[in-house]
Amino acid sequence: MICLSPSDPTGGGGIQSDLLTGASMGCHVLSVLTGLTVQDSAGLEDSRPINSDWIDDQARCLLEDMPVRAMKVGGLFTTEAVSVVAELSADYSALPLVLHLGADPPETPDAETEDGAEDVLAATIELLVPQSKLVVVDRQRLSQWLHDGVLISDTEGAESDAEDAVQMLLALGAERVLTTGLHEPGEQVVNHLYGADEPTVAYPWPRLPGNYRGAGSTLSTAVAALLSHGLDIQDAVAEAQDYTWQALSAGFRPGMGRMLPDRFFWARKAAAEAAEAAAAGLDAETED
């Protein structure tokens, strides 16, 4: 599969997360860098976009060389980048596109930067959402975008702002929308899978303690990896959530900020079990 994302030097999100998650799930990940960032485990301080022509050249060079079965798109920093990625996706429309709407904007009081981020989001919704097999987004973000006017609703009687926003994304052409409930209250985290004219599927998960970085990146890339293995969308979404929950459950806190998922939890678990079995065998030999 091919992943288009910015760099995250912490390994929590971004292209580093894509590489770790994809490799853990048996995929060879082709990586297209969309931006550079300055960040630590606490948050994003600054970012620098990659020229849109370079994004296009990176992707097409790879796609013309190797067979690819799925595409995941993460953070994009300019409207020009959104435009070239949309054109790329249209040219390779046979590839299922998983779009993660979850990039953190730089923490800055600069109004021009904030306006630019809103323009990028609006362009992403207009150009990439209609081409997406799956949009992965936090419910709280959806509600905020509705309040901020990034999404303009004409729907009456919706159960919530997030539900209203989901229907808008589906109306734009997204095949499915997966909303995550990490930031909503409750003992469980409840994710929801929506499709046009299909019943909504709820996925409750035990809430884990701690504040995590990279949960959405891990989840969206895991879905893309499973789609590239040939799973249908519902099976891929269910299995990707299980993988992500286990990665978060085995998470660690390497710095002074948020916890990071352990995408190779299964390998460390297998190594620990093998060590325990070897130690038990040595104990048995000693007793004999």
Rank of each mutant, 00 (worst) to 15 (best):
G257P: 00
P209I: 02
A86F: 02
L4R: 01
L282Y: 12
H183R: 13
T108S: 15
V136Q: 06
E184G: 02
L151R: 00
H100Y: 08
G181P: 04
R207H: 04
V82W: 02
D148H: 13
G195S: 07
D65K: 12
S143V: 05
Q140K: 07
L172G: 06
E198K: 12
L36K: 09
G35H: 06
G75L: 10
L170N: 05
T37A: 00
R141H: 06
A250W: 09
T124R: 04
V190T: 02
G74D: 05
T221S: 12
Y92M: 12
D138R: 04
S220F: 02
T179F: 09
E163I: 01
A224Y: 06
G13M: 06
G173C: 02
D197S: 14
I125C: 07
E64S: 09
V32Y: 11
E175M: 09
T37Q: 02
D115Y: 12
A23Q: 13
Y194S: 04
V38R: 09
R268Q: 15
S217H: 09
K133Q: 14
T155W: 05
M71H: 01
W205K: 02
D235K: 11
T180P: 03
G251P: 05
D242G: 10
E276W: 14
D65S: 13
T34F: 02
Q140F: 01
W54F: 08
E187Y: 07
L97D: 01
L226K: 11
P9C: 09
G74N: 03
T108F: 06
M259I: 01
E276S: 13
E184T: 08
Y212H: 14
D65W: 13
E198N: 08
V166F: 11
T113Q: 13
G195R: 00
P96F: 08
A111V: 13
T113R: 14
V129Q: 01
S31W: 00
L88P: 05
L62H: 10
S249P: 07
L76P: 06
L127A: 10
D283R: 15
D65Y: 08
A278H: 10
D138H: 10
R176S: 04
H192W: 11
T286A: 14
P67D: 08
D197C: 04
D53Y: 03
R263K: 07
E107N: 12
L260N: 00
V135L: 01
V68I: 15
D154T: 09
S217I: 04
G210E: 09
D40Y: 10
D235S: 15
D197E: 14
P106I: 12
A42N: 06
D161E: 14
A94L: 05
A171E: 15
S7E: 09
A275V: 11
D18C: 13
A272M: 15
V129A: 04
A70M: 06
P130A: 10
A174Q: 04
G230N: 10
F252I: 03
D119Q: 13
R69I: 03
Y212K: 06
A272C: 13
L172A: 15
M168F: 11
L20R: 11
A42V: 10
Y92V: 09
G181L: 07
